[in-house]
Simulated assay, not measured.
Amino acid sequence: MIATDLHALTGAYALHALHDDERAAFEHHLASCDACGQEVAEFTATVGRLALASTVRTRPAMREQVLERITMVRQVPPGAAVLERVRRGGRGGRALGRWALAACVAAAAAFGGTAVWQYERAQGAVDRAAQAERHAEDVAGVLAAPDARSRSVKVAGGAGTLVVSASRDRAVFAVSRMAPPPGGKVYQLWFADGGKMRSAGLMDPGRSSQAVLMQGAVDGASGIGVTVEPAGGSKQPTSAPIALLSVPA
């Protein structure tokens, strides 16, 4: 059942807590109500700050423990059972034994290559996890900073909020329900420095809601912009900004 007062649904909408009929009615209302749009953007930023600020840091020794266990845990090499049966088979199995032994040696060599490949994959996964953890901590640090200031804007059909911490000299751009970029394109963030645009990184084209730690220092920037660029980004903007907002004081 659709609520009669659509203005009261801003918080539930930001939390994705509306039923399909309520969400459709509210989004239709949102298109023509600036007050609700502002509230949704502010609620969205608040939800992001609360969620990311509660990130739990893993123990520093976890990475070393994972890498150590990878080197200690082994699988049974292919052909090991066959080799044992041949060893017990006596003279009648000598001819077969030579072939089986050769097969086992080849299998062991293949297993060795597989083990190296598995180790490298595990190492890459650990490194990616550590990088993601550091990124989450940096984002949470900006959002939870005592001096964090925010400013909101509508962007690509969704709501965007810029959060800046002067003490950390970093900025986070959080978006919710942002339309995907055209095929082969990506959203790129920029700092405006004295009339020049400085790249601040790319947004993930596959995510409609995300919090991006902008690359580079905020100091000296008067505002930020969002443009649509070719995949991989551009050194300078190649399209008109789809969103512009000043850096909150």
Rank of each mutant, 00 (worst) to 15 (best):
R88P: 00
A243Y: 15
G89L: 07
S165M: 09
T44F: 01
G160L: 10
Y119A: 11
T55D: 03
P181G: 04
A102S: 12
L213Y: 03
E22Y: 06
R63G: 14
S176A: 14
I224R: 08
G89N: 07
V155H: 06
H29K: 02
R63D: 09
T71F: 02
E42L: 15
L202M: 03
A115G: 03
S208V: 00
S150W: 05
P205T: 12
R91S: 08
V139H: 12
V47C: 09
C33T: 00
A24M: 07
A231I: 01
Y187A: 03
D21V: 06
G206R: 13
S167T: 13
V56T: 13
G97L: 03
P78A: 12
V40D: 05
G92Q: 10
T58C: 07
P60E: 08
V247D: 08
A61F: 04
V47K: 11
A80N: 00
R151K: 09
D21S: 14
A110F: 07
A159K: 07
I224K: 03
A192S: 07
V172Q: 09
A35C: 04
R57S: 06
F111R: 03
A221M: 10
V73G: 02
P241T: 05
G79I: 01
G89H: 06
H16G: 05
A109Q: 13
V139C: 11
E64F: 04
A25K: 10
G11R: 14
A106G: 14
L9G: 05
G216W: 13
M203K: 07
A95I: 15
G184M: 11
T44I: 02
G160D: 13
L18F: 09
G233K: 11
L50C: 05
P230D: 12
A129W: 13
G37N: 11
G97R: 13
A243T: 10
R207P: 00
W117E: 07
A132D: 15
E42C: 06
A148I: 02
F111W: 12
E27V: 02
L162I: 04
P180C: 09
V73M: 12
R57P: 00
G90W: 11
G206C: 04
C33F: 01
V116H: 05
V155R: 04
T44W: 04
R63M: 13
